[in-house]
Amino acid sequence: MPVELPDRRMLLVHAHPDDESIGTGATMARYAAEGAHVTLVTCTQGEQGEIVLPELAHLAPEHDDALGPHRAGELADAMAQLKVADHRFLGGPGRYRDSGMVWGADGRRAVAPDQLDARAFWSADLREAADHLVAVIREVRPQVLVTYDEHGGYGHPDHIQAHRVATYARDLAAVRSYRTDLGPAWDVPKVYWTATPREVLQEALTALRERGGAGFDNLASADDFGYVVDLADVDAVIDGSDHLDAKMAAMRAHATQIDVHWPYFTLSDNVGQPIWAQEYFRLAHGRRGPADPGTAVETDLFAGVGP
Rank of each mutant, 00 (worst) to 15 (best):
S123N: 12
A124P: 08
A124W: 03
D125R: 05
D125E: 06
L126F: 01
R127K: 14
E128M: 01
A130Y: 10
H132N: 11
L133H: 14
V134R: 08
V134M: 04
A135L: 00
A135E: 12
R138Q: 05
E139S: 14
V140T: 12
V140E: 04
V140I: 12
R141Y: 02
P142E: 10
P142F: 04
V144C: 15
V144L: 13
Y148W: 11
D149F: 00
D149R: 04
D149M: 01
G153D: 03
G153P: 04
Y154K: 04
Y154V: 00
Y154H: 07
H156C: 10
P157T: 06
D158S: 01
D158T: 00
H159D: 01
H159E: 05
I160W: 02
Q161G: 07
Q161T: 13
A162R: 07
A162E: 07
H163M: 12
H163R: 15
H163S: 13
H163G: 14
R164L: 10
V165G: 03
V165Q: 02
A166H: 11
T167Y: 01
T167W: 05
T167E: 12
Y168T: 15
A169I: 11
L172P: 10
L172A: 15
L172V: 05
A174W: 01
A174R: 09
R176A: 12
R176M: 00
S177K: 05
Y178C: 06
R179P: 06
R179H: 07
D181V: 11
D181L: 10
L182F: 03
L182V: 02
G183H: 06
G183E: 04
P184V: 05
A185F: 04
W186S: 03
V188P: 08
V188W: 02
P189T: 04
K190I: 00
V191R: 15
V191C: 12
Y192L: 10
Y192M: 14
Y192T: 14
W193M: 07
T194P: 01
T196R: 06
P197R: 08
E199H: 08
V200E: 14
V200F: 03
V200K: 13
A204D: 10
L205P: 10
L205S: 09
T206A: 08
L208S: 11
R209H: 09
R209K: 15
E210S: 07
E210A: 13
E210C: 00
G212A: 09
G212Y: 07
G212N: 13
G212C: 09
G213E: 00
G215M: 09
D217A: 15
D217S: 15
A220K: 13
S221Y: 06
A222W: 03
D223C: 07
D223E: 14
D223R: 13
D224K: 03
D224E: 03
F225D: 05
G226R: 10
Y227W: 11
V228T: 15
V228M: 07
V229Y: 08
D230E: 11
A232G: 09
D233E: 14
D233N: 02
D233F: 01
D235C: 10
A236R: 02
A236W: 02
V237T: 15
V237M: 08
D239W: 05
D239Q: 07
D239A: 09
D239F: 03
G240I: 05
S241A: 13
D242L: 03
D242A: 14
D242C: 00
H243A: 04
A246P: 05
A246R: 14
K247C: 06
K247V: 06
